[in-house]
Design a protein around this nucleic acid. Structure first.
Length: 117
DNA sequence: GTGCTGACTGCAG
DNA sequence: ACTGCAGCCAGCA
């Protein structure tokens, strides 16, 4: 196979979606946490990029993914400026001033949660 | 084919 | 505490 480069990076996006799907209702995680869980901590950007593409997938709660500060950095990519906050509110996550309240309490780390089983 | 941008993060000054 | 820079990789002009 000279030009054969089977699905390699495509798996990354797929894995990102799988992890996001595992985020419990009422919890949130960060791009870095997902990247870290996938073993590509430095590719946290790609997680956000994957989320952008995830918009087409209804089973991927992208609103539950925020940056490490708990800021809704991706809210601008939703239909309306308040759509992400509304979706989080439906999950029981309180957002104030584009920031998740009690972020450390609702934070869901796949590296820890999934590791403990 | 080349270069820039982007839903991020960690480290250095 | 704040600012700036480098690394990561895919999509688009």
């Amino acid at each position: 196979m000279h030009n054969a480069m089977p699905n390699k990076q495509s798996t990354f996006f797929h894995d990102v979606y799988e992890v996001v799907k595992l985020i419990p209702k009422g919890r949130v995680t960060s791009y870095g946490a997902i990247a870290r869980y996938l073993g590509t901590a430095k590719s946290s950007r790609m997680v956000g990029y994957a989320m952008n593409a995830a918009h087409a997938l209804p089973d991927v709660p992208a609103q539950r993914v925020v940056n490490r500060n708990g800021l809704l950095t991706g809210k601008s990519h939703f239909g309306t400026p308040t759509r992400m906050q509304e979706l989080l509110a439906q999950d029981g996550v309180v957002v104030m001033n584009d920031e998740v309240v009690k972020f450390k309490e609702v934070f869901w780390d796949p590296c820890v949660e999934l590791h403990l089983g």
